[in-house]
Write a protein that binds this DNA or RNA. Structure first.
Length: 270
DNA sequence: AAAGACACCTGGGAGC
DNA sequence: TGCTCCCAGGTGTCTT
């Protein structure tokens, strides 16, 4: 997906256009996303004012006077604010039409995203088990160390576990581990305390830098204004298997963890 | 209880 | 040109 920086960039991009606006209509062209869009979602949101746009993990929450719309971008989702008259294209599944004449347009080729009503049993279920936000003080050594201390799983799997910390996807987990000199396959319990402290700092630093630069542009992601993010050029190992490590010149290798590619420098990461 | 496999879905690129 | 195969930012759920 869009990882956390992309979601946050989207939130910041759309918020000024949505906040304070009244919803005129919800157009659902294809309700078959990860979960079907609820049939009664349009009835619930129609005529309501959007009070604020917030984010929890990778969920965008469009808060209304009553309740909220909970949007997830999945792997290939994207939201943009466009003129409501702009013709919809193939993967433009949802439009949230505003009184301003603009609409929030949701595009998602793979349809792993979701639009749900919140609160609902499903939304509560999805949010209830989530760990802390990585950019808050709550995500610190005293929190993470006890979770790693007796855990045999690979450190990469642990930091990508939403119950441990949210918003660290494959790209940023890969990059933070490189920056910390930790092999992604290393058992969490064998990461030293010093390395764990560094890892936490690098996760925060890299996520913050990516947000600052508007997210990482890969295949599908563009910012809500349609401009690409600029972080991709800063990637040190992700997507660079076979190339030379910028730091030591060794060839970057790739392995698979949890059916997901994991790039690392065999020399810099032990 | 924890780790791994599989599921959802489309598009792009590599190789033949 | 076109076919087949593999891969991709996520994450809930089912199997070991």
């Amino acid at each position: 997906m869009p990882e956390l920086p992309e979601v946050e960039t989207s939130r910041r991009g759309i918020a000024p256009h949505l906040t304070g606006q009244t919803i005129r209509q919800l157009i659902v062209r294809n309700a078959q996303l990860r979960w079907p869009i609820p049939d009664d979602l349009a009835a619930k949101v129609n005529g309501q004012e959007i009070t604020q746009i917030t984010r929890r993990a990778k969920y965008l929450l469009l808060a209304l006077k009553q309740g909220a719309i909970m949007v997830h971008l999945g792997m290939s989702g994207r939201v943009r604010v466009v003129n409501a008259e702009l013709p919809a294209e193939k993967h433009d599944h949802v439009d949230l039409v505003l009184a301003s004449g603009q609409c929030l347009r949701f595009t998602d080729p793979r349809r792993f995203g979701s639009w749900l009503w919140h609160p609902s049993p499903r939304s509560e279920q999805l949010l209830s088990h989530l760990g802390p936000e990585p950019l808050t003080d709550e995500f610190n050594f005293d929190y993470l160390y006890p979770l790693c201390r007796n855990r045999k799983a690979a450190i990469k799997q642990v930091i990508m576990d939403n119950q441990v910390v949210v918003g660290v996807g494959n790209i940023y987990a890969t990059e933070a581990l490189f920056a910390s000199g930790i092999r992604p396959t290393r058992s969490a319990q064998k990461v030293t305390q010093q390395q764990l402290k560094q890892l936490i700092q690098h996760i925060k630093r890299i996520l913050a830098a990516a947000i600052e630069q508007g997210g990482t542009t890969l295949k599908d992601f563009t910012r809500s204004d349609g401009k690409p993010g600029y972080f991709k050029q800063a990637l040190q190992v992700y997507g660079r298997a076979g190339e030379a490590c910028d730091s030591c010149g060794s060839t970057i290798k790739t392995t698979r963890q949890g059916q997901r590619a994991s790039a690392y420098c065999p020399s810099c990461q032990k």
